[in-house]
Structures are given as structure tokens and as C-alpha cells.
Design a binder for these strands. Structure first.
Lengths: 201, 201
DNA sequence: GATATAATATTAACACTGTAAAGTTAAATC
DNA sequence: GATTTAACTTTACAGTGTTAATATTATATC
């Protein structure tokens, strides 16, 4: 039954085409400014064809964001982990997280700010990629606590504090590019350093 | 010339009517889901009347956000400041900031996340309310540094770190209400405490 | 009090939006 | 070759932000 497979392949191919056209447009022009017709034009299909592959525009956004989370997870997992110093690993991961956000600012905002607005049910459900990202963070924090480097607060809270710090600085840098920030890398490093020091004590 | 003044008063009154109708709708239904026609209906005027008072929808958003910043500034300035302990004052202010964000989550998001998307030139220009909010933060941080409680990093960076922390936790709590957060107040307190401790060291 | 003037509000229209329903076409199965 | 199935398009609807032209009102001038 090679035909069915070819068909399925073609279908998947078109899905990917739509997805990558949508991502490119969303990222360059902003989710609100991209119409289904624009996406359709780009891939040279009629607008309604998109609806054969995605429920609606929000679903399309959803799929784009899932990819972004996957990319973020890959970026983090590809980090060479320092097996002797868990704090150094955490520091590096935090830095990588922020840098990911700044490298793909629109992707980041789409995933962590725009999407929650449309999909109330967040993307951190059980087994989701989003959950895996937070699992990664939890794991690293856990090591720091186990080795008694960090205060013995529970892992959850500690991880959430770390997340808040990197999320905050990432969004501020993205959203207020004209603000007279301290030199970018210095700011990021200070945020991460400060948070880690605060978690020790 | 009492007539002109009355006219001006009436005009201002209508402006305020539009503004408060817009805020209520933006906050309850989300900026994207509110149409000019909806706002007009609410105040029982024709849609185009709004354009006699505001340049466009983004300008309307802009004005709503300016009010929010003013409210935030008032909230912060009404805080009873502990004159003997600047750190305690900073802690209280941080807490008040986050609580403001959580009390008016849509206002907060509108101001600090949605607006920057439409008005690239942020709202932190010289002399603006936004700048005053940051000035307030800078002042408090400065006291902590002067009294040699904080590390002798420059005031700017220190303030920005603090801002990143509270901004981060505020947005996470708003955007991912279903995430299994640590008890809310504990999380906020830990974020602020951790950041302050990290700034001492 | 009638008329001109200015301010204020409205109607009509344009080009665009997301998306549902119906219609078309081509390929696969019998 | 006829029929079913899948993929895709056309058409249509109700709604969007916004502009230009028009109408209405209230004030100022004569």
C-alpha cells in the first residue's frame, strides 16, 4: 500500500509547509497582523485549505508554539552539563534560556505570552513539551539542593523562582528595547547570579 | 467665557466615558476581542465619534495604559515607607507591585506586554509616568546601596534585576494560572526575598 | 429673531478579517 | 466504467478598523 503512504507523506508535507509559512509570518509581522489569507497566499493554496489541517488560527499558533518549546528543550539538552558543579550547570542553562528568548523574541513571546491569551489551558499539561522544559529545570535545581548548596526550600518553589527571574529579564529586554538597560549580557548575568546567590544563603 | 469652559468640560467628560468603557471592555474581553463598535455601543454613540477623541484603537489602548501606570505609581507612593530600614521598604514595594499586577491582571498585561507590541516606542519616555515608576524603584534601591546593605553594583543594574524578578513572577502567575505553583504568596515572597538576599552578599 | 459659523456627531463606504457551507475535481476502489 | 472518497476551491457571511462625506446641533454675529 505505497500509495496511501505517499498520500500521507504529501499531507504531512503540506502541513509542514503551512506551519513554516505561519511561523515565518507570525514572527515577522506579529500574530495579529497575519491573516489566514496571507498564509495561504504564501504557500499558494486557498485560505480554507489550512482548515483541513488545523482547526483554526489559534490551533495554528498552538502548533507553532509546540515547535518552539521543542527547540528550546533541544537547546537546553544539548548544553554540555558540568557534572561536578550543578550550580555552574544551572547558571549556563539560565543563560541559554534567556539567549534563546532573545534570539527568537517573537517565538518566545508567541509561546509564553500570546498563546496563553488564546489558549487558556496553557501548554504545560502532563506529558507536554512545556512540562518537559520545566522538568529539566527542576532536575538541575534538585541537584543543587541535594548537594546542600542551596537553601533547603522545596524544589518546586526554588525552580519557580529561577524561572521567574529568567522569564522576567527576557521579556523586559524584548518588550522595552529602547529602555536604557545596563549592557545586555551584564544584566542577564547579574540577574542569574543574583538569583543563584539568593538561593544559597 | 463660561460656555467654552463648559464645552471643554463636556468634551473631557465624553473622553473619560470612552476611556472607561474601553478599559472595562479591554480588561474583561481582551484588547483583540474589543471592537470600536462595541465600545461605541456601550456609551451609546456612533463608532466614529471615538475618532474625534482618539487617533485610533492603539491610541485608546495607550491612554488606558497611562492610567494604569498612574494607578500603579499611586499605589506605590501611598505605601508607608519604613524610614529606618530601606530593605524593608523595597520588600514591601516589590510585594505591592506584584499584587497590583495580580489584582488587575489584564491592565498589567495590557500595559507591560500588549502595548509594547503596538507602540514600539514604549511608554518610558522622559518625563512619562512609566519613567516615574522606575525612578521610584531606583530611589529605593539607591538607599539600600548607600547604606552599604547591598553589593556595590551600580544602581541601574540593581534596579533592573529587581524589576525583572517582580515582572517575571507577576506574568507567570497571570499567564499560567493552571500551573501547579507553590502557594501564591509564598512564591511571591520567596522571589522577592531571594532577589534581595542575592543583592546583599 | 434670522443667519452664518463652528463644533460635534452620524451615515455610508472600503478593504480586510476568520471561517462555514457548498461546489468542484481528481484519484482510488469496486 | 461507475461509484466512493479525499483534497481543494469558490462563495458567502458577519464582523473588523478606519476614512470621507454628510447631517445635526449649538453658538456667535448681525
Amino acid at each position: 500500500m505505497g500509495i496511501k503512504e505517499r498520500r500521507a507523506r504529501e499531507k504531512e508535507h503540506l502541513r509542514q509547509q503551512i506551519l513554516s509559512a505561519a511561523r515565518e509570518l507570525f514572527v515577522n509581522e506579529g500574530y495579529e497582523n497575519v491573516s489566514m489569507r496571507k498564509i495561504a497566499n504564501k504557500i499558494e493554496y486557498s485560505p480554507t485549505t489550512i482548515y483541513l489541517h488545523f482547526k483554526d488560527k489559534a490551533d495554528l499558533l498552538d502548533s507553532v508554539c509546540k515547535e518552539t518549546l521543542l527547540n528550546l528543550l533541544n537547546t537546553l539538552e544539548q548544553l554540555k552539563r558540568d557534572t561536578t558543579d550543578p550550580v555552574e550547570t544551572l547558571r549556563k542553562s539560565g543563560k541559554a534560556y534567556v539567549e534563546f528568548g532573545l534570539e527568537y523574541p517573537q517565538d518566545y513571546k508567541l509561546t509564553f505570552v500570546i498563546r496563553p491569551q488564546f489558549q487558556k489551558g496553557l501548554g504545560l499539561d502532563e506529558g507536554s513539551v512545556g512540562e518537559k522544559v520545566f522538568d529539566y529545570l527542576r532536575e538541575m535545581v534538585s541537584e543543587c539542593i541535594q548537594e546542600k548548596i542551596f537553601r533547603q526550600v522545596d524544589v518546586e518553589t526554588t525552580g519557580q523562582v529561577m524561572w521567574a527571574a529568567v522569564h522576567g529579564v527576557t521579556l523586559l529586554l524584548i518588550d522595552f528595547p529602547d529602555f536604557p538597560w545596563t549592557e545586555k549580557d551584564k544584566l542577564i548575568d547579574t540577574v542569574i547570579h543574583t538569583t543563584i546567590e539568593g538561593l544559597k544563603a
